[in-house]
């Protein structure tokens, strides 16, 4: 039973992952710093999920990246592109709408 709970929870949160990641990328971040920021805010995302996701968003031109080679270990920084900012605004609007709609549907019955 616990497994079923977990499965639905993971499924529920999966959709919010993109919006959460995008929200933290108005200023440039590198992979690990972004992961730390999310973990600090209580968002549970695995490193093995986040890094490939960043790459994918970059290939879709939602993120822009640059290598910082001034350090002895190079670092790749990501930030929202113009397209990314637009997408983020759009998703936030849709998110707010969804929250209201879902509340409307479930709110009347019970508030557990």
């Amino acid at each position: 039973m616990q497994d079923i709970y977990q499965n639905y929870l993971v499924e529920l949160k999966r959709g919010t992952q993109i919006i959460v990641v995008l929200s933290q990328l108005h200023n440039k971040e590198y992979g690990y710093s972004l992961l730390q920021k999310l973990v600090d805010k209580g968002i549970n995302i695995e490193s093995g999920t986040l890094y490939p996701l960043l790459r994918r968003l970059e290939s879709q031109e939602i993120l822009e990246s640059e290598w910082d080679t001034s350090l002895n270990r190079p670092r790749k920084y990501y930030a929202l592109s113009k397209k990314g900012e637009e997408l983020y605004t759009f998703l936030i609007q849709e998110w707010n709408k969804t929250v209201l709609e879902v509340k409307e549907v479930i709110g009347g019955n019970r508030n557990e």
């Binding site: 590198y30 992979g31 690990y32 490193s47 890094y51 270990r73 190079p74 790749k76």
Partner: peptide
């Protein structure tokens, strides 16, 4: 490889 290496060393 480069991405992953950078990320691993950051951690």
């Amino acid at each position: 490889s480069d991405d992953l290496r950078a990320n691993i060393f950051d951690m």
